[in-house]
Amino acid sequence: MEKTRNKIKTGKGELAVKIVMYVIAGAFAILCLYPFFQVLISSFADEVTLVREGYKLIPSKFSLSAWRTLFADQTIVRAYGLTIGTTVIGTALCVLVTAMAAYALSGKKLKYRNFFNFIYYLTMLFSGGLTAYYIVVSKYLNLSDNLLVYILPFSFNVWNMFLLRNFFNDIPEEIIESAVLEGAGEWCTAFRIVLPLSLPALATVSLFTAVSFWNEWMTSMLFIHDEKYYLLQYIIIEMVDSISNKNVSGAPAGESQQIAVTFQLATAIATIGPIVLLYPFLQKYFVAGLRVGGVKG
């Protein structure tokens, strides 16, 4: 009798704990989604109504004018194209260079591999600092106001190289050995055998790389002087700066409203970019790739 009562009691307690856990997880997930939803739906609101009534879960009056203005805005459309271009070309080049180095240093074939590992690893620990980097790129390479500045400095990623190398290390030695016995050269082995066997890892690294190209802005700030060649993210940053700074400096309210609120919101949504739309479908690769990297820290 005593025993059964205990059982029922714990059963109820367990159920309560279970419910609380679902509620917390669900609440945090909704909290993560809510800002996206609010900004997206408000970007379709009517400007005057939005300013008068404030933000609502469902705006009382809809309008497409913000998005129409956005698509007609030459600066933003051009920046969008430029950002897509640098992302595609940059990602392709960076993943290629990174994967080549990762394959070379994988396995135990190279006698001096630890020396190269060290050379690469050192750059993760110590850097020359922003100033020296700035001088090298602008003075010695003369890349200021040159679109290559968006791609060349980011053409190799040490962190991703080690991540890929760890992944390549897990490919059975016999597969590579047999390719070499068949007379395949190192380049052929790399591109015909090792890379095709590593598509999940390459997908992960490509997505990380693409996201970092898409989100890049400091290069525009430091090296580009012509507004025409700014990347999307830097245009957003300048917009935020002008909105938040004008509110502070006590400028008349009318002036700070020059950029329509709905237009700001539409721009913010547009800047998120196509990568995020792909993300839910590619999540399993991300997670798998992260675990591969986590094995060796």
Partner: peptide, 12 residues
Amino acid sequence: FMIVFAYLPMFG
């Protein structure tokens, strides 16, 4: 890429 964008700045 390493020498140009990481080690040259270190010399800087």
